[in-house]
């Protein structure tokens, strides 16, 4: 199980495993605020990605987390917030 911080590189790797590479701009530091849908990833891709993040990082994301995190930055922050909560408990 991975631990510590969830980075943009983690997101990129898991997204590619879960949903393949998109034709458009890739997830990277330059696209942190671009919406997933514009990057070519819709809700199904994010559900699969979310489930892989949960398994790899040993966290549970609320149902609303994925829908409330339309950009890589928002999702990374949400995952890290969850990681902090779980490490504290």
């Amino acid at each position: 199980m991975a631990s510590g911080e969830f980075t943009v590189q983690d997101l990129k790797r898991i997204l590619h495993e879960a949903a393949g590479e998109s034709d458009g701009a890739d997830v990277d530091v330059g696209t942190m605020d671009t919406e997933f849908i514009e990057l070519g990833y819709e809700s199904l891709a994010l559900l699969e990605t979310g489930s892989r993040i949960e398994r790899e990082f040993g966290i549970t994301l609320d149902d609303s987390t994925l829908f409330d995190s339309p950009t890589p930055r928002a999702l990374i922050e949400a995952v890290n917030a969850q990681l902090t909560v779980q490490e504290a408990s």
Binding site: H16, E17, A18, A19, G20, E21, S22, D23, G40, E48
Partner: peptide, 8 residues
């Protein structure tokens, strides 16, 4: 095929 289609 596009990469996006492969995992699904």
């Amino acid at each position: 095929l596009p990469s996006r289609l492969i995992p699904q």
